[in-house]
Design a protein around this nucleic acid. Structure first.
Lengths: 169, 169
DNA sequence: CACAGGTAGTTCGAATTCGAAGGAGTTGTC
DNA sequence: GACAACTCCTTCGAATTCGAACTACCTGTG
């Protein structure tokens, strides 16, 4: 019988879980200051611009963006509103689907991205990339990529499950 | 996201950056539902309880906690308020420093932690740990640990003045 | 065509977050 | 002991986030 004064500890494999969360929080906060200083952008706003900049020829739907960012749709609406007010993105009604809204980078949005990117690269390099030598970086990328695939391959956030794979009503 | 694609203007090593952020966001959202269902806890609240549970004999100061969580102090005040109202933690004035406040787990806090932990372990295992075989897990932990050390070794967030790279005034 | 069920975005209210300012205690220097 | 500079935590207002409800549109079945 477990001693009530000693809280249960997590399995040792969970170090990876905490380390992951901590690193990502630190990286995120590390870049936030730079983004705000150089471009007046929040981290989420930068992410939106960066995703749109990945492939300017294929505009993204709101749902796409929300999914990519792992954000709520309402939160995305709010941020796209702000970016549109700032003139950095444009909402274009989808041609195929009357309900759909596609978001694209405006020329000003491209400029904003170009303005923050150099400093951003510096900060990320300083804070994250330099912590790893080349081989480790490749290895970490490989491992994280595998995890992303694993997670993306299971029902996305809309599917709630209380355990592991239990069928529920 | 088929592949951590990076805008052409970003160096290729930055795939690790995007993959990291995406994985951590997915993990975080993945556990949030379970924590709320099983214990009525937000992710941050769970983190606070978990940190306090790590070593109940050494209570943590507010600043300590904020630093560990990579959260603002005001945000931590808010969350500790809520946890205290719920009876899960207790604020104890520091003996050595009249300004200091130490936070400890109450018996109810221990119970809450015990109540959510099994399900939490399941979810994390399902979503993250199972994505890796044993060797990869060890490797990932090692890599992330190195990054944490690297980041913690530089001026913490309180010195958000010149941030991470450029000295600027 | 009509209708049920599903999807895309937005709006709304409530909860949470942050940074700046403030009150109080501590430390170092003279 | 007085003073300035610093640290610890909280309060305050503004910005951001989420989930639920809502509108509008699309798809499949009869």
């Amino acid at each position: 019988m477990p001693d009530a004064t000693v809280p249960p500890s997590l399995p040792p494999e969970f170090g990876v879980y905490f380390a992951l969360l901590e690193v990502s929080a630190l990286v995120q906060h590390g870049v936030e200051g730079q983004l705000r200083r150089d471009g007046g952008l929040s981290f989420v706003q930068f992410q939106i611009l960066a995703i749109l900049g990945e492939d300017p020829s294929s505009p993204r739907s709101m749902t796409d963006l929300a999914d990519r960012l792992v954000h709520s749709k309402s939160g995305l609406t709010y941020q796209v509103d702000r970016l549109e007010q700032a003139g950095l993105v444009v909402r274009v009604p989808s041609k195929h689907d009357e309900r759909g809204v596609n978001v694209t980078l405006s020329p000003q949005g491209v400029s904003a991205l170009e303005r923050v990117l150099p400093g951003h690269v510096d900060v990320v390099r300083d804070v994250l990339v330099d912590a790893l030598d080349g081989a480790d970086r490749v290895e970490l990328t490989r491992l994280l990529g595998g995890v992303v695939q694993h997670m993306r391959s299971r029902p996305p956030r809309s599917a709630r499950r209380s355990g592991a794979g239990g069928a529920e009503e």
